[in-house]
């Protein structure tokens, strides 16, 4: 797989990375190389082989609906780069979810 610089820019936007032009160019070559290597998985005939997410087969690990203590007051925002009135402060939001 060979990526264009536009592909790299698109992926960088999806990944929320403000990359410089030099980084875009470097990544174009590196990602193409790495993906070419990774694409070797396509050589394997996997037919109806199921995918494995976890090697050890576990299922239904469930937690009882019992409250546990939350963090102490103000601990949540103690790590925040910017907080106001116990809330995390962020610049203006352009996109709506």
């Amino acid at each position: 797989m060979s990526l264009s610089t536009d592909d790299v820019r698109h992926v960088a936007r999806l990944a929320r990375l403000a990359l410089g032009d030099d980084e875009i160019v470097a990544l174009q070559a590196q990602l193409s190389d790495i993906l070419a290597y990774a694409e070797k998985v396509g050589e394997v005939a996997t037919g109806d082989v199921p995918p494995t997410g976890h090697a050890y087969p576990l299922a239904d690990v469930l937690r009882d609906d019992e409250p546990r203590p939350s963090l102490p007051p103000d601990a949540a925002v103690a790590t925040a780069p910017q907080a106001e009135d116990g809330r995390f402060r962020v610049p203006r939001i352009v996109d709506e979810a």
Binding site: A38, E39, V41, G42, V44, T46, V49, P50, P51, T52, G53, A55
Partner: peptide
């Protein structure tokens, strides 16, 4: 990519 890699993982 991801799903195929997970199938190779099975193998």
């Amino acid at each position: 990519y991801y799903a195929q890699a997970q199938r190779v993982r099975t193998l």
